[in-house]
Design a protein around this nucleic acid. Structure first.
Length: 561
RNA sequence: UGCGGGAUGGAGCAGUCCGGUAGCUCGUCAGGCUCAUAACCUGAAGGUCAUAGGUUCAAAUCCUAUUCCCGCACCCA
């Protein structure tokens, strides 16, 4: 039995996440976690809300709430949505909890002790009206190059030029609109990443064979350009305070959200488990842990380079990631899903329309693994109708209904395995092996294609076995067809569990079981696990089809182009 | 601008590392079956693999250049 530690990128606290966020990290992590639990491994799947930083402060300000209250509320909203989507976190924590404060301060102290941080003073824009320092992008003004009037201090969206806030003409705070802004000196703590390049580089290259191409190429890109020292503190109120460890002039600052967020993985574990160190400290029991991270491609650099700098700089034996699964973007009709502009479908809205498994299936079957993938409601409806309603749902329906009408509500006895069954067993042996392998490799689209082929194999078998014909001449021959069909339903229930857990539960409930142990023997044996005489309850229609009119309505509702 | 990823029948994708008859799902068309959610099963049509050169007996696959899409690099996360 292996010990598998799984984390998915921490969703930012700023509002409920959209389908792109979901499929980019949390959902594939959940599928993998469920699968590994089924194979008997000891799994710990950890996630948390990432709560610090300017956007959280401003979002709270905008609706007249304290940041704490805002985060409390948003955390609950996200937690509930995760539960409803069947995300099987062992713990869903928060980066604003004490455990994270303590650990973040611990790492910073170690980095200082080991000579990897130093103070540097720089100039930054301060808004007097807002009484806060402004990050570059929160300063707006007229672009010095193209005269666009709403250029941001980091970049002009009109001409695409990179800017400094000081380049802007007539600059103002985008928070309040005030022009009463000035440059002020501010001192920050810098993490000396240049000094940590060597160990990080060695560590990355040690994983060259096991990391996916996308992950590796992003990590190498950053290393090739050379790591730069990075400010790890900010002039904000909401965040992990520096305390008095770095001098009185630093006492009112907080750590940069990107410094404390990945530490949140560890802290979230500590929130719930006294034995947290056995998962995270190689000197305290974590040496046999295999650690898998899931994230969107935008996060890869932070996890392959920045956070490892923190870890290496601590010179302590913290567990580092072994396998890093990175995904591309899901796009909304080819454009961006956007939390700030509310474009696309969000987790709560999705569940108001349809149950979680509809979304889970489509998202995993079309996971953006090799390239950005476009989400369209038309494609969604087509896939769900075909795969879930026609191929899987209809199979369950036809087998249980036929059995009930001819043999009653229990698994019928009689009949011998013949060539039609042998052919099915051979097909399943190949497919189940491939499916298992692809789940292990986290090749989710391929795994879904395998699972779909397994469902389709059921229909092919029924077509050939044709118990409705056999029943007239030779009821025993019909009985074996139905018995195998019912056993297939149970097998589908087990195999489908990682991707569509709610459906899996329903399929197994037909036979009054909840056992999802991964099948290991040959199909010939697996398909006799339900003996003759077992009673069952035919289910209602598993998946209702999506109508064209609904697609049209949703396109309207969600502003599809 | 630099760096990464991508471009394959109407749609979505696999195949590219390790050159050798272009594969899967949907859609379309035809046939079969009738237990089932007008479902399922079988078969067919449809592609000069972004463009232009090159290497080779042979290129979707290797090399060079170009075009277009996405991401990153500064700030935010």
């Amino acid at each position: 039995m292996a010990r598998i530690l799984i984390t998915s990128a921490l969703p930012y606290i700023n509002g409920i996440k959209h389908l792109g966020n979901l499929v980019g990290s949390m959902l594939p992590a959940d599928v993998y976690a469920r699968f590994r639990r089924q194979t008997g491994d000891e799994v710990l799947y950890i996630c948390a809300t990432d709560e610090h930083g300017t956007p959280a402060e401003l979002a709270a300000l905008a609706i007249g709430q304290s940041v704490q209250a805002y985060c409390d509320e948003q955390h609950e909203v996200q937690k509930r949505a995760g539960d409803q989507f069947g995300l099987s976190f062992d713990h869903f924590g928060r980066t604003s909890r004490d455990e994270n404060y303590i650990l973040t301060q611990h790492f910073a102290a170690k980095l200082q002790e080991n000579g990897f941080v130093e103070k540097r003073t720089e100039k930054q824009v301060f808004s007097i009206a807002d009484d806060r320092f402004l990050p570059d992008r929160y300063v707006e003004g007229t672009c010095p190059i193209c005269a666009y009037e709403k250029a941001r201090g980091d970049q002009c969206d009109n001409c695409g030029r990179l800017l400094d806030p000081t380049d802007l003409k007539d600059p103002y705070s985008s928070v309040s609109g005030s022009k009463d802004i000035e440059l002020r000196d501010t001192t920050h703590l810098y993490l000396l990443q240049e000094k940590l390049q060597a160990p990080v580089e060695t560590w990355v290259e040690d994983h060259a064979d096991v990391w996916p191409a996308l992950t590796l190429s992003i990590a190498r890109k950053w290393l090739k350009e050379g790591l730069r020292d990075r400010a790890i503190t900010r002039d904000l109120k909401w965040g992990v305070p520096l305390g008095d460890a770095f001098g009185p002039e630093m006492a009112n600052k907080v750590f940069y959200v990107w410094f404390d967020a990945p530490i949140g993985y560890i802290a979230a574990t500590k929130e719930k488990y006294d034995e947290w160190e056995s998962w995270w400290r190689e000197d305290k029991g974590a040496e046999d842990v295999s650690y898998v991270q899931f994230m969107g491609k935008d996060n890869v650099a932070f996890h392959t380079v920045s956070f490892p700098c923190t870890i290496f700089g601590s010179e302590e034996p913290w567990k580092k990631v072994d396998t890093l699964k990175s995904l591309n973007w899901l796009t909304w009709y080819g454009g961006k899903f956007s939390t700030s502009e509310k474009r696309g479908i969000f987790m709560d809205q999705a569940l108001e329309i349809l149950p979680a498994d509809y979304w889970r299936w489509y998202l995993m079957a079309n996971a953006p693994e090799s390239d950005d993938t476009s989400f369209t409601l038309e494609g969604f409806a087509q896939t769900v109708n075909k795969d879930l309603a026609d191929v899987l749902g209809n199979f369950v329906n036809r087998v249980t209904r036929f059995c009930k009408s001819k043999f009653g509500e229990e698994v019928p006895d009689g009949g011998e395995v013949g060539p039609v069954e042998e052919k099915l067993f051979a097909e399943l042996d190949t497919r189940i092996a491939s499916y298992t392998e692809n789940l292990h490799a986290m090749e989710f689209r391929k795994a879904c294609a395998d699972l779909r082929a397994i469902w389709a194999a059921g229909n092919e078998y029924m077509q050939e076995a044709a118990p409705w014909t056999a029943f007239k001449e030779d009821p025993a021959k019909a009985a074996i067809g139905v018995r195998v069909g019912l056993n297939l339903i149970k097998l589908f229930g087990v195999l489908s569990h990682p991707i569509v857990p709610f459906t899996s539960e329903k399929l197994l409930a037909i036979f009054g079981t909840t056992d999802t142990s991964w099948p290991t023997g040959p199909a010939a044996e697996i398909l006799t696990s339900l003996p003759a005489g077992t009673s069952f309850t035919p289910p209602d229609v598993l998946f209702k089809k999506i109508e064209d009119s609904q697609v049209e309505e949703w396109k309207e509702t969600f502003g599809a182009p």
